[in-house]
């Protein structure tokens, strides 16, 4: 489960879902970058994430589309 990896730095390897991939790539969230979940949303459905020098929010199921090394 993705929610158990909080506070761990992970390196992006690739993406499973095409649309998620397009979206993340456009935002400059690319393979090779490290990602860290900072916190979980009040209703537990999304993550507050630090990646490179930007902060992004995404749903847990979107997060699950990212493949890590």
């Amino acid at each position: 489960m993705s929610s158990q990896v909080a506070n761990e730095r992970l390196t992006i390897k690739g993406y499973r879902d095409k649309q998620v991939a397009r979206k993340l790539v456009s935002m400059g969230i690319l393979p090779g970058m490290t990602m860290k979940i900072v916190r979980i949303s009040p209703f537990g459905r999304s993550f507050y994430i630090k990646v490179g020098n930007q902060i992004v929010a995404m749903r847990t199921d979107e997060y699950d589309q990212i493949v890590f090394e």
């Binding site: 649309q19 902060i55 995404m58 749903r59």
Partner: peptide, 9 residues
């Protein structure tokens, strides 16, 4: 169309 959250804060 599938909805996405993915936003920059």
């Amino acid at each position: 169309e599938k909805g996405y959250l993915i936003i920059s804060l």
